[in-house]
Design a protein around this nucleic acid. Structure first.
Lengths: 345, 345
DNA sequence: TTTGGTTACGAAATCGTTGTAGTGTTAATA
DNA sequence: TATTAACACTACAACGATTTCGTAACCAAA
């Protein structure tokens, strides 16, 4: 049985297409008995209007395009689940595009979706894009009247709605707690500075130390190359972190800018025969499964990913439905939350 | 600047719409200089054909609908990444629908996408659907000429392409290895039987024991209620597993049907003062981040999620492009791989 | 001059839907 | 009896693209 269309119903019942359309919309123009007949037929054969035709007619797709760097990633999936929740609520569909942290893929993916498939974007730019500082694709889509909401990894130069995490403050809170718990040699394991969130978290670490009058010791700052995040280079990552921990025996606390770094550090510490949290306290960033199931369970800075996704989706849908794509744009800053578990005192 | 259409180009250059269309497709019907002019204009103003219009015309969307029970889930995202890879390669887009393990949401999500938005489904049914044994929505979409590829949680009663994991064999391999390593009291932590994969893994456990001549001891089989998988009931899950471990002091190996159960069991074992793998070996199922970052790193049965996604996408795209929605259907069974890490001897 | 064949383009149908603007019939009003 | 209004429906254009068919203009061969 092929898909039912208005045309087929019209032929079957020997009325015009318009009559069928109006009858199904319960228009007063159509006589009661005709309406009944058409509705019954439609129901019986389970007629559902064709979305594509509607999208073309209305020039609205009720679809949101979400572009993320990676999908096998706890934080991003949490955000998606928030987006999906609101989208579902408001009758929208979600298309996912993956950039795989590549600028090219980000551009082609956006280009593809921008041609009528969606009503707006929710996106977190790839590392590659941050590195190249090439944002022409973002500017162009906005210029073409397509609204964008950026999240987490936002670009200051681009004028659009944004939902970001207060990374700096989150890091500051974490490091201050470490200090208050009696630590004085707090190390940080972070990324290179071109990764925006890494930079911000590093800034939070430094400002926490400064505000507490603790001198900054460059030796306690480990900036890991981005390439080490590949599955293939896991060994290298391990090595770097292990030797960092061994070299700096005075460390009494570690702040890591993600779960992976934190867990690897915990391992290194334990292998070095020190106990967590008694000898060394550890805090991570991002509240994922790793933190919860680590031994000891990792104290971490939660980013409220789901709430972030919800906010982003609401902002975007609001713009779409109000047909308002002009400034002013909002930037929502979500506060982080320090989740105390067993890796701190 | 609004989106450019063929019509606008035609008006601007004072030719007909057909001429523009043909010129851009480099049709020999159009004169060289006219073609040049039109192409230059289109390029300058970055014309891209409207996907929705094309979809309507061709009655093909080049879009795949993926319905999964959950997105914050390592296995499913791995599968998606595989699907996405092939989709990208073949010029397809991916729409994600989440069922949240609910039958209702599965049905409404599928209904929504089935109305012209996609060319076919790749899906893993919700637990709720498995429990209710109500598959009318699957039958109906197939009847309407929409191809479906099921993965992982497949329904035997539904005739369509399937890509599944050899859960039983995977479990058998894991348990046999435990036995070969000298274990004799192997416990299993599994789900209730209405969860298909749980059931299969339990069957594998039992068959491994039988084939090795080890008597089955019902006391060593822990079936956990599905409700315990909720974040909210994490305590209850912990409790159940901990008391199971304590109650059965004779256990010398544990096979858990997922990472969460495995990690929780590891914790319970360690808290009980026993060492892994010396006193008790532990094996999990699903090769996620948890296994890799656990201490000790968890030996696990990998399902090759990415490959599964790739296979599923290829099967679906093949059907779509060959316009062949009829039997025979294929069932691809993916072999699992035992990844030896530190939690076994 | 007539016929035929290129060349270079345009008109119109189509995909499935919606909404506006008719249209034919009947009944009520002036 | 002529006008008008209400009713119940249909025709048509539009959304943006493709594609088949048609045709005007030109040149060459008969």
């Amino acid at each position: 049985m092929q898909k039912l269309t208005l045309k087929k119903i019209a032929q079957e019942l020997e009325v015009s297409i318009s009559t069928v359309s109006k009858a199904l919309k319960d228009s007063p123009e159509i006589g009661e008995d005709t309406k009944e007949k058409i509705k019954a037929f439609a129901k019986l054969y389970n007629y559902k209007p064709n979305n594509i035709a509607l999208s073309l007619k209305n020039r609205k797709t009720r679809t949101l395009g979400v572009i993320i760097p990676e999908i096998v990633h706890h934080f991003f999936t949490t955000v998606i689940s928030g987006i999906e929740e609101v989208a579902e609520e408001m009758g929208y569909t979600v298309i996912i595009g993956l950039s795989n942290e590549s600028f090219e893929k980000e551009v082609t993916n956006m280009d593809k979706l921008a041609n009528g498939s969606i009503d707006g974007f929710i996106l977190s730019v790839s590392k590659d894009t941050q590195l190249r500082q090439d944002f022409h694709h973002l500017k162009e889509t906005i210029d073409q009247g397509m609204p964008i909401v950026m999240f987490d990894r936002a670009i200051p130069e681009i004028d659009c709605d944004k939902v970001i995490v207060d990374d700096e403050e989150g890091a500051r809170k974490a490091v201050k707690m470490l200090l208050e718990n009696g630590a004085s040699k707090v190390a940080i394991i972070t990324t290179e500075d071109h990764i925006n969130v890494g930079k911000l978290r590093t800034a939070g670490y430094i400002s926490a130390l400064e505000q507490s009058g603790v001198p900054i010791n460059e030796a306690l700052i480990l900036k890991l190359k981005d390439a080490y995040n590949d599955e293939a280079n896991l060994d290298k990552l391990n090595q770097e972190i292990h030797s960092f921990v061994l070299k700096n025996a005075q460390i009494d606390a570690i702040f890591a800018v993600n779960e992976k770094y934190a867990l690897t550090a915990m391992r290194a510490v334990q292998l070095a025969g020190k106990s967590i949290p008694d000898d060394i306290q550890v805090v991570g960033f991002t509240d994922g499964v790793l933190s919860r199931f680590a031994t000891p369970a990792l104290t971490t800075v939660s980013q409220h990913g789901k709430e972030l996704g919800r906010k982003a989706a609401r902002l975007l849908i609001d713009r779409i439905e109000k047909d308002n794509f002009d400034p002013p744009f909002t930037t929502v800053v979500l506060e982080t939350e320090l989740i105390q578990r067993e890796s701190t005192r």
